[in-house]
């Protein structure tokens, strides 16, 4: 046990790293698992899962991330304080995502209910997919619209 001093006084439980060396086969196994999971995500993307595809892709990504963080970055064996920093960050990311997405998803309903704003529909695509990318260059857009009259939106 090494000795650590603070202001000339002996520190009872100093904050020190302990050495942990993972065996090579474990690293190989983790790499193998990561490659297999990459293959799974890749193959699943060709199957039409609809709304579930995002959930499945994120589920696999979280498993892969856990393997990298736990084994390659040693968090499984490391000082617990580093795990605390990492998970604390993830919690703040969750708050950031949760509140922002909740706000944006519920704003329309609240605006309609309280009649806070009157939405102007003329300048929107009214929920329809747009046929071509919007071109901010007005001259270029006019030239394109002239060439493709069938696709030209009204009013341009």
């Amino acid at each position: 046990m090494s000795t650590v001093y603070l202001n000339g006084k002996l520190v009872e439980h100093p904050h020190e790293v302990h050495h942990h060396v993972s065996p090579v086969p474990q690293y190989v196994a983790v790499l193998g698992a990561l490659l297999v999971l990459t293959g799974v995500t890749f193959l699943v993307s060709f199957a039409d899962l609809g709304a579930a595809s995002l959930t499945v892709a994120m589920f696999v990504a979280v498993i892969k991330a856990s393997l990298v963080v736990g084994y390659f970055m040693h968090l499984k064996y490391d000082d617990r304080f580093h795990l605390f920093i990492f998970l604390g960050t993830i919690i703040f990311v969750g708050l950031f995502f949760g509140f922002t997405l909740f706000d944006l998803a519920s704003r329309d309903a609240i605006n309609d209910e309280q009649r806070t704003f009157t939405r102007i529909e003329e300048d929107t695509n009214k929920g329809q997919p747009m046929k071509i990318g919007i071109d901010n260059d007005l001259a270029r857009r006019a030239a394109y619209d002239a060439k493709h009259p069938a696709e030209a939106p009204e009013g341009h």
């Binding site: 090494s2 100093p14 904050h15 020190e16």
Partner: peptide, 13 residues
């Protein structure tokens, strides 16, 4: 730093 372990711990933190 007093020890290598303490130094490495600070760097990693």
């Amino acid at each position: 730093f007093d020890t290598m372990e303490q130094q490495a711990g600070a760097a990693k933190l």
